[in-house]
């Protein structure tokens, strides 16, 4: 059974029709990626799943429950965490405070072991635990944003362009971490412009073009597809 099932959602910004009937699903244990150019509607889809935006028609079901009308902060309680585009860590709060905020929905007793887990995965964060997040490098902020999302112990982790603005070596590191998280049993929905990197880790992938899904298949299939190579992989 699908963990997340997005069924024919249409999302508007005022009169602008940004997402025009997108359907896809994510099964437990998978890494699924949505790739597409800037403005294709990828973040809009994620924010709709998180409840920050509302579909005019269509539905989002998580663990067989319709998320319609559920406030964003309640969506997190159900086990859906998003690492937003541009990381959006709390720049004036310390690394540790950011992680505590990530555990907002969790009982107090889980915070200390949760933080210890995050530090084990991201030792750099432990070194900087008392620093405010604004002083971290872009890569460290991405790690913090991911660690913060993991603090809510999500059943589905959604990542919005984790490679954005990072140096190639850091992109590689971030994707290694995504693979590790997946190996540890986390289900992941990954939105990326970096199609090469995303397809290389994904079990299945969807290509989003101007608000519609134009192609779908396994990561390997799309990597081999002439259409994808031409449009997203530089020939």
């Amino acid at each position: 059974m699908a963990l997340l099932k997005v069924d024919d959602i249409h999302v508007y910004y005022g009169s602008i029709h940004a997402v025009k009937g997108v359907s896809f699903e994510v099964n437990e244990g998978e890494i699924v990626t949505l790739i597409g150019a800037n403005g294709a509607g990828k973040s809009t889809v994620l924010n709709t799943i998180s409840g920050l935006l509302h579909p005019r028609t269509g539905s989002v079901r998580f663990m067989d429950q319709d998320l319609k009308g559920i406030a964003p902060h309640k969506v997190v309680e159900k086990g859906l965490a998003q690492v937003p585009e541009g990381r959006r860590v709390f720049l004036q709060m310390t690394v540790e405070e950011n992680l505590e905020m990530g555990a907002y929905t969790q009982p107090k007793s889980t915070i200390v072991p949760g933080i210890a887990d995050v530090y084990k995965r991201f030792p750099r964060l432990e070194e900087r635990r008392r620093q405010v997040a604004g002083t971290l490098s872009g890569g460290e902020q991405q790690m913090l944003a991911m660690g913060r999302a993991l603090m809510s112990r999500p059943k589905l982790l959604m990542l919005d362009e984790p490679s954005m603005g990072l140096a190639p070596i850091l992109v590689e590191q971030i994707f290694d971490i995504i693979k590790e998280l997946h190996a540890a049993g986390t289900t992941i929905l990954l939105v990326e412009q970096n199609a090469q990197a995303a397809l290389s880790v994904a079990d299945r992938a969807y290509v989003l073009e101007t608000g519609r899904i134009s192609l779908s298949g396994t990561g390997a299939e799309l990597m081999a597809s002439g259409q994808v190579r031409k449009a997203y992989l530089g020939g």
């Binding site: 964003p72 902060h73 997190v76 965490a81 937003p84 959006r88 860590v89 907002y104 913060r148």
Partner: peptide
């Protein structure tokens, strides 16, 4: 701390479950 998080970034705060 929740108040500080909200004053910095409301959407991100909502994504934390706040």
């Amino acid at each position: 701390k929740t108040m500080r998080a909200c004053s910095e970034d409301k959407a991100a705060a909502q994504l934390m479950g706040i």
